[in-house]
């Protein structure tokens, strides 16, 4: 295993996401993953860009933003270490980024080539099942965040209550 691959393997090993994976599966994942240092304010991708990578934040903070005409960029979510973004790139139907991503602070991210990831998941359904199961978790969690944001939890109460 090359030094780069070994470093990638070690970084992936730290992610709770992958702790259930067998060594051979983690090695396959490492083979389609690149580590990338990002600087504060660096734009990783724009809304509408072609989907090509699934990302995992290893350190730092990444902001997901959507541009709203006349309001500018709205930060809808920040991705913290051990969390995933760009997950829709792994699905077969989404071909464009639905939000932009910008590094808020310096950090390190793992970039998993989506096309290669889909390929190794097709070839090895055990690995594919584990990856898709984890991704389903991510999607469910994002759906819950979106629901709670939509509910506008902190909206003014109608009545006068304690607090």
């Amino acid at each position: 295993m090359s030094d780069v691959l070994q470093e990638t393997f070690k970084e992936l090993q730290k992610i709770p996401w992958f702790q259930e994976l067998e060594k051979k599966h983690l090695e396959k994942l490492a083979s389609v993953t690149a580590l990338r240092h990002v600087r504060a304010d660096e734009v990783l991708f724009h809304e509408g860009d072609k989907e090509d990578c699934l990302y995992i934040v290893l350190s730092g903070r990444i902001a997901l933003e959507i541009f709203i005409p006349h309001r500018g960029k709205i930060r809808i979510y920040t991705v913290e270490p051990q969390d995933v973004f760009g997950w829709s790139s792994v699905t077969p139907v989404v071909h464009q980024r639905t939000a932009g991503a910008t590094a808020v602070v310096d950090g390190l991210i793992a970039c998993i080539d989506s096309e290669k990831l889909r390929k190794i998941c097709e070839e090895d359904h055990d690995l594919g099942y584990m990856v898709m199961r984890r991704l389903a978790n991510v999607v469910a969690s994002r759906l819950l965040v979106t629901r709670l944001q939509l509910l506008d939890m902190f909206a003014h109460p109608e009545s006068q209550n304690a607090k």
């Binding site: 903070r61 902001a63 933003e65 500018g72 960029k73 709205i74 930060r75 809808i76 979510y77 920040t78 913290e80 270490p81 051990q82 969390d83 910008t102 808020v104 602070v105 969690s141 819950l144 965040v145 709670l148 944001q149 506008d152 939890m153 902190f154």
Partner: peptide
């Protein structure tokens, strides 16, 4: 915070979702 603009460098997202950290 539930929503922020580009000047906000802290977390964006709802309180319960950060428990995993």
């Amino acid at each position: 915070v539930d929503r922020g603009d580009s000047s906000w460098t802290g977390r964006v997202g709802v309180v319960p979702m950060w428990f995993y950290q």
